[in-house]
Amino acid sequence: MNILVLIKEVPDMEKVKFDSEKGVVNRSSAESEINPFDMNALQSAIDIKNKYGADITVLTMGPLRAEKSLRDAYARGADNVVLMTDCRFSGADTCATSRTLSAGIKYLGTFDLIICGEKSVDGDTAQVGAEVAEFLDMPHAYYVENINSIDKTEIEVVIENICGSKQVRRMKLPALIGVTKNINLPKLPTVNRKLKSLEIDVEKISLDDLYEHIDADETGFKGSPTKIAKIVIPNPVERTGHIYKDDYVTFKEAIKKEIKSESTI
């Protein structure tokens, strides 16, 4: 079974700085890492591999430095790692990103299952997975919290919540799933794999490699139907901010009033 995992390299959101004057994100202010939600995607693939046997390819589109995340993915258990990188890919919105990733996937061959994370903490759209599924014309399921079974032809998954219910869904392969953080606990890489990950070759794909699958004006900024008109740092809602320390009685009376107006006590 061939499994493809989509991962994105993102800045560490705990540390990244926002320039509120310019309204831009200072990407150099923080280390980058594998999108935390994609760790769960990768771990799902590894779990399938351990249980049923599989070959895992991890694919990312990003700048050259994203090689680091791919090496990390290798250390955690990926068999092959591939970087789609080209300055003409940059400035892509979700439509252009998914179109480019889909072209890369076609270029790489055929996969039985594609796994992505719930969302990326910087893009934050949760759109790329479903768009890739559409461009590759395969079914998809989002919010997957468990994989009940998988074989060469079919996968059965549990969807955490869709339209207010859990759903057990069986899909013919190839299919794409987006997993939630509840599906597993990502494991740490072994020291051996970590060392080996420093020596491997990271396969690279550029736009020229993809001429059979995508046109230059379908990717990057040019190929993006959505454009950012401006960026604003939101003003926090003004709060009254009555903070009490030793004056329990005043605190209690204040919140009692608030709660009384909302509930039946």
Partner: peptide, 23 residues
Amino acid sequence: ATNFGRSIAPRIAAALKTGLTAD
């Protein structure tokens, strides 16, 4: 932008090759 909406909207947008703004 319910769970179902967030899952179906990108499929529709991709099929129409148009832009979609989430959330």
